Simulated scan of single mutants.
Amino acid sequence: MALQIKKVFGILALAAPLLSPALLRADDVHYAVGLGCEFASGSYGTGIRTDSVFLPFTVAVYPTQRLDFSLELPFVYQSTGAVVAGQYMTMQGQTGVAQPAMLAGSMMGGGMRTTASASEVNTSHYGLGDTKLKAGYVLYTEEEYVPALRPNFYLKIPTADKNKFLGTGAFDEGFALELSKWYGDWFADGEFGYTIQGKSEILAVKNYLYYYAGGGYQLGERLRPMLLVKGSTATTEGGGPLLELRLRAKYQLSKELGLDGYLAKGIETASPDYGLGLAVSYQF
């Protein structure tokens, strides 16, 4: 435990100079809170279907126009112990006013199972999921022919009970680069990152590359539908890649209140067969 704590402080110490808000500070500090509900179902190559529910509560802080920090604290339910299914559920895109950038999380590869015994596999589990800390900085703002560039960093803290297979029981950290560009009412954005997974006692995990890419259209002032693909390389030894297609829509009820929903269809074996989610956010 002492070694893990030192590791956390080491990561934060390295990241602090890059995330300093002293370079550009807004007149007012902005905040956002969000609450989501997501469902996914699939066998993930194990031959055992697992239904999962993911309820993330998110708090975000924006000290400047470029800098953002967020904390995600989820509640997780899954119908079996065959996979760490709660890790599949993260909403693609951040609720609130931050740039879209929330793929981080351990995702199990196709055909790989946890160390659950026969009795544990057939038992449903629920409880607190893994906590995620994230920081992003808009390094370069959008120009006529150049997209906006936003590096981001995240740390996963293993607050989920690994004995219930709600998490891997290890710290993960990752970094990514997000790009976004508007063309009139059309827009495109994507993210490409790398996750370093901590050693797990319940899964033979490995480091992996992850990505999402998509685009959409702004319909009036309130509605923004979009289509995107989301995936990663194999995240476990002997596992397969992940890939899914998502139809997503954001609707702004007011200046402060927004809705964000999606429908998902898995393409690769390691992805959920299907999923859906809805989140509400309030910024102030």
Rank of each mutant, 00 (worst) to 15 (best):
M1T: 14
A2S: 13
V8T: 14
V8E: 13
L12G: 10
A15I: 09
L19E: 01
S20N: 15
S20E: 14
A22E: 15
D27M: 05
G36R: 01
G36Q: 01
E38Y: 03
F39I: 05
S43F: 13
Y44C: 00
G45W: 13
T46G: 02
I48C: 10
R49W: 10
R49A: 05
T58V: 09
P63V: 01
T64L: 09
T64H: 09
F69P: 00
F69M: 00
S70W: 00
L71H: 00
V76F: 04
G81N: 00
A82E: 13
G86K: 07
Y88A: 05
T90A: 05
M91Q: 09
Q94F: 04
T95C: 07
T95R: 13
T95M: 12
P100S: 10
A101E: 04
L103N: 02
S106N: 11
S106E: 09
M108H: 03
M108N: 00
M108C: 02
G111E: 02
M112E: 02
T114S: 10
S119F: 08
S124H: 06
L128I: 15
L133S: 07
K134S: 06
Y137G: 02
Y140S: 10
E142W: 04
A148D: 07
L149V: 15
I157A: 14
T159Q: 04
A160T: 01
A160F: 15
D161H: 08
D161G: 08
N163T: 13
F165Q: 01
F165W: 15
G167D: 01
G167R: 00
A170T: 13
D172N: 08
A176D: 08
A176V: 02
L177M: 12
L177D: 07
K181E: 12
G184I: 14
G184E: 12
W186M: 03
A188E: 12
D189G: 08
E191D: 13
E191N: 14
F192E: 05
T195F: 04
T195I: 11
T195A: 09
A204V: 01
A204E: 03
K206G: 01
K206W: 07
N207K: 11
Y208K: 12
Y208F: 15
Y210L: 04
A213C: 07
G215P: 03
L219E: 07
G220F: 14
R222D: 04
L223N: 03
R224G: 12
R224V: 14
L228E: 03
T233H: 03
T235C: 13
T236N: 03
G240E: 05
P241T: 09
P241K: 05
L242C: 12
L243R: 06
L245A: 15
L245M: 15
L253A: 12
K255P: 08
G258R: 01
D260Q: 12
L263D: 05
S271M: 11
Y274C: 05
G275S: 13
G275N: 07
A279E: 03
V280Q: 06
Q283N: 13
Q283C: 13
F284D: 07
